[in-house]
Each structure stands twice: as C-alpha cells, then as structure tokens.
Write a protein that binds this DNA or RNA. Structure first.
Lengths: 249, 249
DNA sequence: AATCATAATATGCCTAGACATATTCAGAAA
DNA sequence: TTTCTGAATATGTCTAGGCATATTATGATT
C-alpha cells in the first residue's frame, strides 16, 4: 500500500465533507435567486476545475440538488435550475399512542366492536379485496387522559394477516400491533373533514354536527392490501403538522 | 486513452444500473422480513465480493437504503436494519388553480377584501412579526365551475415582499403571484377542521356549521416570514392525499 | 473487577480515469 | 427548406485504490 500520489489536500480533516460544502455553495446561488429558474449550471468538468476536486465529488453535490428537486439534470443538456417547486411537504402521521405518551398524557385503547366476516361489497370497496375475502372489522376508541380522543374504524385483510384472527384487540391498539408485525411497503393517506353524526358524537362524547378531522389510511405490502383505517378526531383535539425545508435533509 | 483493464462486464448495457439492482435485492430482504429489524448486514467488503463489484457501488446502494431510513449506518458498528418507520408521508399541497384546471374545471379568483395596515397583535402573532410591521391582509374566494370552492385568508409581510403593496390581487390568486416571485426556503402546514361560522358559511354558500377542512401555511425565506394563509374548504369539496412508498423514489 | 490504552474494523469520503448513453448541434443530402 | 446523419458534449455509472474517523473489541494495568 503506497501513499496515494494523487491526494492534494487532507480529507476528512474538517467535520463537513467537501461535497456538502459544494452542495451548500450551489444551493445558496439558487435559493437566493442568483441563479434564476432556467439558468444552466456549469458542467461537472468546469465545476470540478473551479472547486479543485474530482468530478465524482461534484456529481454527488449535484445529485443531492437534484434529489431536492432544486435542479433537473439531463445528459448533454446539462443541469438546469428548476422553477420553485409545487407546495410539497413531509407529513408525519404519528402513532397516536406514542404521541400522547410523549406529551405526558395517559393513553388507553378501548375496543368497542370486533367482528370477523366475509367482505361485503362495502368492505370490498374500501379495502380493495374481492367480496367474500375474510376480514376483521374493528371499532375502537383512543382515550387520552381518560377522555375520548379519537374514534377508529378499521378493516384488516385476514388473508394478508391471518395472525390477527386470534388477537382480541381488547386493549391494545390494532395500529401498534400491526405496525410491529407487518411491514408495509406503501401507504396512502386521505385527509378530510366531516360533521359528526349521532353515533360518532355519542362515542366521542361531543355534540352532534361538531366538525371532525378524518384520516383514512390504506396500507399495502407488495401489492397486497393489509388494512384500511379511518380515524376521526374532534376538531379541537388534533391538528396535523407538516414541515418542509429546502436544503440539508 | 487505453481500454480500462479492470472492466469485467459491460456497464450501461442494461437499462437499470447495478447499484439499483443491488439496492432492490437488499431491500427485498428487509421488507419481506428475511432480515428483521436489528439484523446487521454484511460489511461493504463482503457485499462487494459477493456481488462482484467495487465497494463504492455497494456504498451507493447502502446509502440509498439509509436515505430511505430502512437501515442505519455507523462506522465500525456496521449497517443495521431499522424498526419499521413511523408513519411518514409526502404530502403535496397543490396549487388550487393548477389542480382545478387539470381536472378540467373552470377556475377564478375573486378578491373580497384587501387592506394594508400595520400589524396588530393578532396579525403579529399569526405572521410572527413585530407589531407595527406593515402587512397586507387579503381575503379572497377560489371559484370552481362558477361555485365557491375555497375561502382564503392571507397575511403578507410587506417588509419581506414590498412589491405586493402595488398589486391589486383583484383576480389573480396571491398564492400564485407569490409562488413565482418569492422563492421560499421553509414551509409549515397545519391541517385541521372547523365548523363554518356565519361569515364563512355566507361566503362559501354553505350551511352554517358545515364541517370544513382548513389548511394553514406559513412560509419563510431564510428566517424571514413571508406569508401566512388559511384556506377553508367545505368538507365535500376537498381531500388531501398523501402517498408513500418504500423503495425507489 | 474496573479502568484505560491500543488495535482492528466498517463506514465515509475522496481521486483519477474509463466507458455508456442521451441529447443537441452542425453540416450534408434531398 | 426540410430531413437526416454524425460529431460533440454533459451526465450516469463504474472501477480500484487510498486516507480519515468513529466505534468496538482486546488486552494490559491497576
């Protein structure tokens, strides 16, 4: 092992890597408007020369900019600054239990209904399985500090999760149970609002017609539907927060 | 330029790159449970040997897995499979106008109120600026197919966006106007639900107490607050959809 | 048994060079 | 003028090797 004859400067001596520095430097030019949308960046070769590093290091920095959607890269066409991105944000849908415990509030799950049945047409439509597929239908209440916090209506595909048939879900949240048993590969959320009907109002101990936030979630494991859940929060009990930053992930 | 003496197989001959194949192969092992959470992956050297490629190619694949939060990598400790991630999803908050036009519905913005004032305490709190800062307060209606679609209440920091003072916003949506003028670097969304009060109901032509979905958005440009907006959708007019997939971005 | 210094190890980052491929551009042919 | 063809170019991917650094394991010393 001989000493690398090509090395010019010590690497790793500084805490922040070179490609990050370069990334930051280029990012500044873009977000501060010095390079407006449509502007074409210098080629990798030129940047490598001007920054005094190998082309691959530039490639890594430009790749990171592309990951962040700040630029578009095309062969021969070069690297071009994007128009400001459409509003897009990372939404974290937290585990209700973890969230409440973190806030120092007591938490409990209470099962209200549990039925195994063959999917009727409604089940088949919401869960996306053929009618007749065995499903587990659960209704439960999440309680925070003793008071009703959210109502959960869930369908589980027993073909995908046969172990669920033996589980009572009397006081453990099916969300948690599933999360640590069945890895999901794809999820879709739909967020909406509804006026509480009589049944919902009674169970959540709120007035009829109170606005509620609803979150519907479908999860898949490699094409196969695992579960569908609708969680209903009274409007004063929950907000979703999503935050996005340009820049270092 | 001599032919690379090290090359063993043609690259680029196949449409999918080697590191993606490797990424996929490793990802399968994880999401299908063959490598459970906590399992330590073989070292880069071992993987390079078994896949018959350079260590850097393995590094790229493992780096992608780490970006997806499927694994955690630490020096000397190695690469370890993560516990299933907390529910986290990319939420796209679309431009209302673009969304409606894409759906083939006519769109119009109608200004209802426009006032320039020095921020009162309420303005200061919502926009996060010192009281007295000049702000532009706008109220407007998004119409789809002639009917009210969403109500928008907005505050713009005139210190950050002085050009807005000259703009009437009579029939162009301030969201669009801002988006293409002021690049934002950070955004926060809060999603909730509310019962329409009399004023909201009148403007949206819905019944009082109808549940509405609200989206509040704050945007920053490098520490500086740009705007705060609250958009109110009747519950039957809008849903937010967020989708997440493990795997290739 | 507990503490500390040292060696081993796995990742992190980098280089210089090479081939592959998509896309654009200029010039030739129709 | 239009269409086609080949050259030029910028990115995409890969290799083989090297140094840097964090962390763990080991062994020596107290």
């Amino acid at each position: 092992m001989t000493r690398n004859p090509h090395r010019r400067t010590a690497i790793g001596s500084s805490a922040i890597p070179r490609y990050r520095e370069i990334y930051e430097s280029l990012r500044q030019k873009i977000v501060l408007g010095q390079w407006p949308p449509g502007h074409r960046l210098p080629s990798e070769h030129e940047l490598a020369r001007s920054f005094g590093c190998a082309r691959m290091t530039i490639g890594k920095a430009l790749g990171a900019l592309a990951d962040q959607r700040l630029v578009t890269r095309r062969r021969r066409a070069g690297t071009v600054v994007n128009a400001p991105r459409p509003q897009e944000s990372v939404l974290e849908i937290h585990d209700i239990e973890a969230e409440l415990l973190a806030a120092g509030v007591s938490y409990a799950y209470q099962s209200l209904e549990r039925r195994v049945r063959r999917a009727n047409t409604a089940d088949a439509a919401t869960l996306g399985v053929p009618p007749g597929t065995p499903v587990l239908a659960l209704t439960g209440l999440h309680r925070a500090g003793g008071r009703p916090h959210a109502l959960e209506e869930r369908l589980i595909n027993l073909q995908a999760v046969p172990e669920a048939r033996a589980e009572r879900f009397a006081d453990i949240s099916p969300g948690r149970w599933l999360l640590r048993r069945i890895p999901w590969t794809e999820a879709e959320h739909q967020i909406g609002a509804l006026n509480a009907d009589a049944a919902i109002a009674r169970r959540l101990a709120i007035r009829r017609n109170t606005a509620c936030l609803t979150i519907e979630r479908n999860t898949w494991r490699d094409q196969q539907r695992i579960t569908h859940v609708r969680v209903i929060y009274p409007c004063d009990q929950h907000r979703l927060v999503a935050r996005f930053r340009y820049g270092p992930a």
